[in-house]
């Protein structure tokens, strides 16, 4: 592969599994030293895989709850202390909630979804906004969602949390542009991940149709006719982080097979 991020220092949250793990691997493949962060201890396995595949990688694993300010500040501090800088931040950690009518949503669900998806992103962005300006460069990519660009019934909190990420991305882009720091989001559509399959299974059950029928209905709404792969999100992240993305900031790039155009 290429070396478009040679010796840059990257930090990816939610890197133990799914899209985050694939993003971390792809950044390492492009030459970056990658710090993998996750609440799950499995993040150690992801880091071990990365070290085996890319022995030059000087990154490490961090067990972190992104909703906790002090843990996040320590993680960003450790990254800069051990690797000297922070060039690329990818805020990928995110959670969904089961299909729930607004009337039935609990305070706990609110705190969990808004906490991880928005406050978590905010926490890591804030810590990074304290170190990147001194470097005079940096790139932040927040993972949004097409659910952050449009409302969906029974996913009110998830949609709101991702919309918050997208608007916050724009505000931060405006603030950090004078320091040469670019801030963008990548908005996946329906992705072939456990989160997506689980929610299809759940919705099929509620609507009393088969999983296959549910899957077919979803595919019919996507011009490219299929769910996306985590690798396709990772390649957009690499593009934004590389020199090739140098004139983009404040954007929310849709990687969704055409299911939404704005």
């Amino acid at each position: 592969m290429t070396d478009r991020l040679s010796d840059q220092v990257a930090l990816v949250t939610g890197a133990a599994q799914g899209i985050g793990r694939v993003i971390a691997l792809r950044l390492a493949e492009e030459g970056a030293h990658v710090v993998l962060a996750d609440r799950l201890p499995a993040v150690e396995d992801a880091a071990a895989e990365l070290r085996t595949k890319f022995p030059r990688n000087r990154g490490f694993a961090v067990c972190v709850d992104v909703t906790r300010t002090e843990e996040v500040d320590r993680m960003v501090g450790d990254t800069v202390e051990r690797l000297g800088r922070l060039d690329v931040l990818v805020n990928n950690a995110g959670v969904n909630h089961p299909m729930t009518a607004v009337a039935d949503l609990t305070d706990e669900t609110f705190d969990h979804v808004i906490g991880v998806n928005f406050r978590g992103t905010f926490n890591v962005c804030r810590a990074s906004a304290r170190v990147m300006p001194e470097q005079g460069s940096g790139c932040i990519v927040n993972i949004g969602s097409w659910y952050g660009k449009q409302g969906f019934a029974y996913f009110g909190l998830y949609c709101a949390s991702k919309a918050a990420v997208i608007r916050f991305t724009e505000s931060l882009a405006l603030e950090l542009a004078p320091h040469g720091i670019r801030v963008n989001s990548v908005c996946p559509g329906n992705m072939a991940t456990d989160m997506h399959w689980n929610s299809l299974r759940e919705e099929a059950k509620i609507r009393d149709i088969t999983f296959e029928e549910m899957d077919r209905q979803v595919k019919d709404t996507i011009p490219l006719g299929t769910q996306g792969k985590p690798e396709e999100i990772a390649s957009a992240v690499v593009y934004l982080a590389s020199e090739d993305g140098g004139y983009l900031t404040g954007q929310a790039i849709n990687v969704n097979g055409g299911c939404l155009f704005h």
Binding site: P223, L224, E232, Y239, Q251, I253, N254, G257, G258
Partner: peptide
């Protein structure tokens, strides 16, 4: 790298 992107008008 952009195979899953379609219908988008990307600001640069």
């Amino acid at each position: 790298d952009s195979d899953y992107i379609t219908g988008q008008s990307i600001m640069v």
